[in-house]
Each structure stands twice: as structure tokens, then as C-alpha cells.
Design a protein around this nucleic acid. Structure first.
Lengths: 179, 179
DNA sequence: GTCAGTGTTCACAAGTTGTTGAACAATGAT
DNA sequence: ATCATTGTTCAACAACTTGTGAACACTGAC
């Protein structure tokens, strides 16, 4: 039984690794989420087959993210997973992807401005301003999409994972008709 | 002028790094896309300020992806960017994300089956099957969403970047109303 | 206080990734 | 055929990431 669960944890870790987290975060969170009872760090380490020091860091980071909490105030209390992870995903998307898109957008605006100025001065510009505008449009579409995803945090979902999943599922179904 | 463009290239590289490509791919593609004339590898390397060997590998990989092509059949021909990159993005999403989701889904199904069998044998199962089903639902929503994104390759866009961008923009606008 | 158990810290090993420089091979112009 | 130019390959390096083990600090029970 535990073997299958650990495999799920590893699959979740591999998946989440592509989303800016570390694999160990996914493994630990998934184990806590699937385990009926809260676990101590020592138990987590034994189950996943890694060292306690690795778990210590991972749990501390997951608690910062708000994805894991000790079951009561005690320092040595066992830990449980916070199921409502959308706020965290939204935060990560905002802080990472948004800044990346914003950086690209600003750079593009600077380049377009410069190119237009140079052209107005009669200089030959060896770059394609039309394409810069296309890429600029792309960043703006990306930012709109990101804004929508981030707003789901407030608009839908509330606190319960179950209801969030349900509304996300409905949204995807409507999206399919849209495309 | 070139300075601004290189900054755009670097921003694009940083962005695309989060999507499973290497930063250098984004830098090279962006430079070729923004430059009005095709460039030789040597020129690319000089403009971006990196070694020719790095560019050689990057260009070869971008050509495999179908994102860059030599401007004619000549081996030493200068290279130009292929603007229609959605097919490649769709391929990468399929081959990477789909497999990750599929791996998680299979592991979850195995764990659920095992847990149900153990329960039917009267064994105590220390894991929460209900949550396994929730995560399973999550992978299925993810796969549906991915299927939609991948289908955009065929359903919309066609060959031209411009028209693809336009339809993507309209889609996002409708999506906002939906959420 | 002592002790077993729990969490934290840190220097380090192993592995991965991005990049380079130098040597090499292919091309096209003369 | 020669030569300058262009692209390719590969060993090596530096930077970074992941995970470990040992030493340490904290807690609560006895």
C-alpha cells in the first residue's frame, strides 16, 4: 500500500517540479495529503526514503507557502497538508510569471520606442518593428490570461478544494465549447 | 538600438526558460525574429555576446524544433526565425506535461485500487482514499485543459502568427467573461 | 537533571546544466 | 588548390541543485 502512495508522491513531485517548486515539496505535500493522520518529520523521511534534514527544509518552506501546518501550536506537533492550494499557486504565478512577462513587455516597449525614434531621425533600423509589436501583443495576451487565472482565487473556489475542483472542471468544459 | 533588442532577447530567454526550453533558445529565436535580415551564426554569437559553439548547438536544436530555418538549402546560409511557433509549444506541452500528468494519474489509480482491495480484505488502510479521488479528478481536469490547448494547433491559428495571436486574444477576452 | 525523541543547521559529495575555447571539418570564392 | 569563412564537436570548467550525515539545540516525560 505504502509503495503505491510513494509512487504517487514521486509522480506529483516530478509534475510540480515543472511549476517552479522543488520535487521534494510535491512529494511531502502529497504524502501528507493522502495520509489520513498527520505525520512527524521523521515519519515522512522514513516513508519517502530520504534524510530528515531534507524534510526539515522542505516542511519549513511548505509552511511558509501555507501548504502545510502543524496540527496544533506545539513545536514538535505532527504536520498536515493544507488542501486549499490555489492561493499559493496564484501567488507563485503572480510573482514569477508576471514579472517575467512584465520584464519582456518593458524591454519590448523600450526597443519599439528606440526604433521609432531612430527612424524619425532618418537612421536605417535593421530590426523589424512590426514583429516587436506582435510580440508585445503576445505579452499582453499572456498577462490577461494570467490575470484571469489569478482572479480565480477570489472569484471562485473559496476555501474548499472540493468546490474549487468542481468549478475548475466546469470552467474547462465551457472552455472546450469556446475553442 | 541593438542594446535594447538584446535586452528583449534576454527577457524572452528568461521567460521561456520556465517553459522547458533553454534560455539560449529564446534569445536566439527572438533575435532572429526581430532582425529584419537573416543572420549567420557568427553574427548571432557576436550580437548576443556568447561563443559560437553555444550558438551552433542552439541553432541545431531550434531547427529540430522547427523554430528556425536556413534561408535556403545552403549549409552556410543565414538563418531566419519561423514565426509560427504554436505547433512546437503544443508538441512540448504534449510530450512533457501530458506524460507527467499521465504518470500521476496512473500512480493514483494504482493506489486507489490497492486501497480498495485492502479495505475489502478488512485491512486497516492508513491513507485517505477520498483525497486520492480528488487528486485524480485534478489530473483529469489538467489533461482536459491540456487537450484543449493542444487542439488549438489545428482548430485555430493556421500558419500565420498574426492570425493566431488575434484568435488567442479573442479567446482570452471571452474567457474573462466566463470566469 | 537526564534521556529519548524531534527539528535545525551546515559543510560537503554527487550530479546536472550552461558555457567556453580550441581543434577540426565543410564550404564557396578566387 | 588555396584560403578565409562558417559551422561542429568535445573536453573542461564553473555555477547551481539535490541530498546526506553529523553535530547541535529544543522539548517533554520521567
Amino acid at each position: 500500500m505504502t509503495r503505491q502512495v510513494v509512487q504517487v508522491c514521486e509522480a506529483a513531485g516530478r509534475f510540480i517540479e515543472y511549476w517552479g517548486f522543488k520535487a521534494i515539496h510535491g512529494r511531502v505535500w502529497t504524502l501528507l495529503a493522502l495520509r489520513a493522520q498527520p505525520l512527524s518529520q521523521t515519519e515522512i523521511a522514513q516513508t519517502l526514503g530520504v534524510s530528515r534534514s531534507l524534510i526539515s527544509g522542505a516542511v519549513a518552506e511548505l509552511m511558509e507557502y501555507g501548504l502545510v501546518r502543524p496540527v496544533d501550536g506545539h513545536r514538535t506537533a505532527p504536520y498536515e497538508a493544507v488542501m486549499n492550494f490555489w492561493p499559493t499557486i496564484a501567488d507563485v504565478l503572480r510573482s514569477r510569471e508576471w514579472m517575467l512577462l512584465e520584464g519582456a513587455r518593458l524591454a519590448l516597449e523600450g526597443a519599439i520606442e528606440e526604433a521609432e525614434y531612430a527612424t524619425s531621425q532618418g537612421e536605417a533600423v535593421p530590426y523589424d518593428v512590426e514583429r516587436m509589436r506582435l510580440l508585445l501583443g503576445l505579452t499582453e495576451v499572456g498577462q490577461s490570461l494570467l490575470r484571469i487565472l489569478m482572479s480565480m482565487r477570489v472569484a471562485r473556489g473559496g476555501e474548499r478544494f472540493t468546490s474549487w475542483l468542481k468549478s475548475a472542471s466546469g470552467l474547462v468544459a465551457r472552455l472546450r465549447r469556446l475553442v
